[in-house]
């Protein structure tokens, strides 16, 4: 979201320190929540029992889950507030907002995979895949926070609302947890580790930098904006062009 980044020969600044720390925080809280949460959902599995006993019992696990949830909730809400404020005061561009282009890009990419287009879709700062993941996790996270609070304070909630809400919240919480875990385990882990384009690891969120080569391939519209090249001239760059470029340049 932050637009000011330095252009250094081959490396382009993509994420600020704040974003890197935010990602680390997400890894830690998300990991803890998944470990303590799934072991409660699948309590009969040996590994769940092992983990829960290692953590000192079910009460401990529930406490860890709830307080980690509080940290996760604070981080999520701060993220939303800061992003909203940042966009409103026009410090940042609303680069995560879903636009019509995202849908056309998705269709374009599927056509490209099937061999009906010559080049993949040209993306801006965030591709439709990244936006899908971001909004999936964000809305899912908000749902988890809401239902999690309901499950934490059932007596309070039921004072105003029907009792069936509690088992419904439990169903939502545990099902949505599975959705998020699958989204991360399948989609995020593939795109940032196993995808042949980034393998063995997309390091940009850890170092804060991305190579110009990857920018050109994955975010050509943003690159052209940074480098001041009109977007139209960059549009010719497809995967094939990149491979040709690769052959000319010595490997770094």
């Amino acid at each position: 979201m932050r637009e000011n980044r330095k252009v250094k020969e081959e490396r382009i600044r993509r994420f600020s320190i704040a974003r890197i720390l935010e990602h680390w925080l997400a890894i830690i809280t998300f990991g803890t929540l998944v470990a303590t949460g799934l072991s409660q959902r699948f309590f009969s599995l040996d590994i769940s029992q092992w983990l829960i006993l290692k953590l000192g019992g079910i009460d401990n696990v529930r406490l860890i889950h709830r307080y980690t949830g509080v940290v996760f909730m604070t981080a999520t809400l701060l993220h939303i507030i800061i992003a909203t404020v940042g966009v409103i005061i026009r410090k940042w561009q609303p680069s995560m907002v879903i636009t019509k282009n995202d849908f056309t890009d998705a269709i374009h990419d599927i056509r490209y995979y099937l061999g009906m287009e010559n080049a993949p879709a040209q993306c801006d700062r965030y591709s439709y895949k990244q936006k899908f993941e971001y909004w999936g996790i964000l809305t899912g996270g908000l749902l988890m926070i809401g239902t999690g609070l309901i499950l934490w304070f059932p007596t309070f909630v039921v004072r105003f609302l029907p009792g069936e809400l509690i088992p419904a919240a439990k169903a939502l919480h545990s099902n949505e947890a599975l959705v998020i875990v699958l989204l991360i385990a399948v989609w995020h882990i593939y795109n940032s580790i196993f995808s042949p384009e980034v393998f063995p690891l997309d390091t940009s969120i850890f170092t804060g930098y991305i190579s110009r080569e990857r920018m050109l391939r994955e975010h050509p519209i943003e690159l052209s904006r940074i480098e001041g090249t009109p977007a139209g001239e960059m549009s010719g760059h497809g995967l094939k062009d990149l491979q040709e470029m690769k052959a000319e340049e010595p490997p770094s």
Partner: peptide, 23 residues
């Protein structure tokens, strides 16, 4: 706990469209 609170327990029923439609 208030009078609604016992309803949070589904009375040993597996949730069905009749017993617990929301769930």
């Amino acid at each position: 706990a208030t009078k609604n609170f016992p309803d949070t327990w589904l009375s040993h029923y597996e949730p069905s469209i009749k017993t617990a439609p929301l769930v």
